[in-house]
């Protein structure tokens, strides 16, 4: 009973609404005219000019570095948090723990940014660290809020898992840490990957937190773009924006492709193993 209803029409319109502005942005980044709204023929010279913009390039490099470390640390922290939430049902302060994990998802960024900055200033006064704000403080800020996203993604996966496999390994005498590393981690690997990508992208994207907790000389890419964009639309920014869109789409697509393939293989291998064991059991009965 497949039919095209109101919902399907809305879905199509919604997707057009989401993607059309981005497509137009990319097309106009190839506009030869300096007047951003007047079409002056195809050209790539806004892209060529980007390489010579050393200030922009160092901001790109800085942002990528922070995003890389954020992805690693937030997957570590988020996975631990997800594990606690799904596998340890009772401990003192559990409600608070749950709140601490989920609240960063919705907390307005200006509040988180301001409060972290004030924390860093207070810490610098009291213990002398961080002496100056920069990439480390941005990394801490990003890790704290990305870990929450990872925790949500990973915990939904952990909940689906069949506990009996972990139980079986334990019964066979494996230490908890060994079970976690050898059994649990490989089973939740796709969600770890998804969490890492999400953190990388969120960190690369963040303007508000970085603006609050960065120091002199540690301008990130979004801060660079923001200060340029504030004054209006510029062809160079169209080119940077298009490159970021391209990078993110490719990255997302490949990550999705590989995790989907890995998942398919895993399901296939499991089914095969099941069939083999039932086959053997039937043979024995016969």
């Amino acid at each position: 009973m497949k039919r095209i209803g109101f919902a399907e029409v809305m879905l199509c319109l919604g997707l057009i609404f989401i993607y059309l502005p981005m497509v137009i942005l990319v097309i106009y980044s190839f506009n030869a005219s300096r007047l951003v709204t007047v079409w002056g023929g195809w050209s790539t010279h806004w892209y060529a000019g980007l390489w010579d913009n050393t200030q922009l390039m160092s901001a790109v490099f800085r942002s990528l570095t922070i995003a890389f470390y954020t992805a690693i640390s937030s997957v570590f922290l988020g996975t631990l948090a997800a594990f606690v939430l799904t596998r340890i049902p009772r401990f003192r302060g559990r409600t608070m723990f749950g709140g601490l994990v989920t609240a960063p998802l919705v907390m307005p960024e200006v509040i988180t940014g301001l409060s972290l900055l004030l924390l860093f200033v207070a810490m610098a006064q009291m213990i002398g660290w961080p002496a100056e704000r920069g990439m480390t403080t941005i990394w801490i800020a990003h890790t704290s809020f990305c870990a929450s996203y990872v925790a949500v993604v990973v915990s939904s996966r952990l909940r689906e898992l069949d506990l009996s496999i972990e139980e079986a390994a334990m019964d066979l005498g494996a230490r908890p840490w060994k079970v976690f590393v050898l059994i649990t981690i490989p089973m939740i690997a796709p969600s770890l990957m998804a969490g890492a990508m999400m953190s990388f992208a969120l960190s690369l994207d963040d303007l508000v937190l970085a603006s609050f907790v960065s120091g002199p000389g540690s301008t990130t890419l979004p801060m660079e773009i923001f200060s340029a964009v504030r004054l209006g639309v510029k062809p160079e920014i169209n080119a940077v924006a298009s490159l970021i869109l391209l990078a993110v789409s490719l990255f997302t697509f490949f990550a999705w492709f590989f995790t989907a393939r890995a998942e398919k293989r895993r399901v296939h291998a499991m089914r095969q193993a099941m069939e083999e064991t039932t086959g053997k059991a039937q043979a024995q009965v016969a």
């Binding site: 502005p21 981005m22 942005l25 994207d205 773009i225 923001f226 924006a241 970021i244 993110v248």
Partner: peptide, 10 residues
């Protein structure tokens, strides 16, 4: 996963 800044800029 794409910069919110860029989508607003568009």
């Amino acid at each position: 996963w794409t910069a919110i800044l860029i989508r607003v800029y568009a």
